Amino acid sequence: MSYKNYPMVSRVVFGRGCFNQLADIISPKRLNTRAPFIFLVDDVFKGDAWLNSRIPLAYDDQLIYISAKEEPKTSQVDELVEQIILTHKDRPSGIIGIGGGTLLDLAKAVAIMLTNEGESRDYQGWDLVKNPAIYHVGVPTISGTGAEVSRTTVLTGPEKKLGINSDYTPFDQVILDPELTKDVPKEQWFYTGMDCYIHCIESLNGTYLNAFSQSYGEKAYELCKEIFLDNDLSEEESQDKLMMASWHGGMSIAYSQVGVAHAMSYGLSFLLGTKHGIGNCIVFDHLEEFYPEGVALFKKMKKKFDIKLPQGLCADLDEQQFDTMIDVAISLEPLWENALGKNWKQTITREKLRALYEKM
C-alpha cells in the first residue's frame, strides 16, 4: 500500500499583530525590483486605513481588490493571470492573498497558473499541475474555511465545481493574525465557523479516518464546541481559538476527506451561486440521517446565536436544474466514499439526493 506524501505549509506565523511582519517576511523573496508582489485583497477592506496602511507596497507592486460576493471561478483566475502578465514584464516575485476562503483560493490558483500553461479549468481535479507555483502567501481575515492550510483551491468552472488539488497548491507562508478577524459580521462569522465544524464532523465520521486526521479533527471539534457553546470566552479568546480551529480543521481533512454536506453544497453553489459556508449550513441542517449527533449540536449552536437559515432555495427549480445539482454532487466520489464507504452508490441514488434537495 502506498501512503499519501502530503505537502504542508512550510512557514507559519501566529499572533495578534503579526500581520505587521509581512514586509520582513516577503522582502527576502523579492526576485528583483521589477518583479512585483501582487496583493489580492478582499474589497471589504477598500478604504480601510487600519489594514491598508500596513500592506508593504514597494517598487512595481500591485494591489488588486476583489469582491468575495461570489464563489471563485476558473474564468476569474484566468482573467487575473492575464491582467498580471500584461501589466508586468517580469514574472511576479509572489502572490499574497488577504481575505477569506475566496481570496485565499484565488491567490493559490493564480500562483499556480502563472507557471502552468492553458486555462485553470484544465487543472480542476487531482494532481494535474505539472510545474511548481510561484511563491504565495495566505493571510486569512476570517476563520473557518481551512483554505489557509489545504492543498486544494476550490473553483467553479464551466462544467463543474472542483478544486485544483495538487502538491503545489499549499501556501509557502501563512500569517495567522486573529486581530484581522475583529470586524467580521455575526452571520458571516457563524457560517464560516460552521464550515470548520462541519469539516470536523465529516472527517471524524468518515471511513477514511486515521490517527493523523483524527488528532487534528478532535482538536478542532473541541475548539468549535468551546467557541460556539461556552459562554465564558472573551472576544479575543474566541478569535484566537477559531483561527486555530480553522487550521486544525483544514489539517483534519488533509489525510481524510469531507462528506455529504460538502458534496451537496457544491451542487447548490454550482447552480445557485450559494456561498460555501452558508451552503454547508443549509445542507447540514437536513443531514440527521448521516450525522445525528453533529446535526443536533449544530442546531443548538444555531439557536444560541439566533441564526435563521434561508428556506425554500430549491422550491422553484425545474427538472433540469435539479439534474444539474445532482450531477455536480454525485460526481464527487471520494467525498461519498469517505462518508458511506465503498458501497455508497447503494444508499445515494439520484432520487435520494432529489428528496434531500427538495427540503432545502
Rank of each mutant, 00 (worst) to 15 (best):
I85R: 14
I85A: 07
L86G: 13
L86F: 07
H88S: 11
H88C: 09
H88N: 15
H88E: 11
D90E: 15
D90Y: 11
D90A: 15
D90H: 06
R91W: 05
R91Y: 11
R91G: 10
P92C: 15
S93M: 03
G94A: 04
G94C: 15
I95M: 02
I96Y: 07
I96G: 09
I96W: 01
G97F: 02
G97L: 09
I98E: 06
I98M: 09
I98W: 11
I98H: 00
G100E: 04
G101I: 02
T102P: 12
T102H: 10
L103E: 06
L103A: 10
D105I: 10
D105E: 09
D105G: 10
L106N: 08
L106I: 12
K108S: 07
K108Q: 08
K108G: 08
K108T: 13
A109I: 07
A109M: 05
A109F: 04
A109E: 02
V110W: 05
V110E: 07
V110R: 00
V110G: 02
V110N: 05
A111G: 08
A111D: 01
I112R: 01
I112D: 00
M113D: 05
M113Y: 03
L114P: 01
L114F: 02
L114I: 08
T115V: 05
N116W: 02
N116Q: 11
E117H: 05
E117Q: 13
G118N: 11
G118F: 09
G118H: 08
S120Y: 03
S120H: 12
S120A: 15
R121F: 03
D122K: 09
Y123L: 07
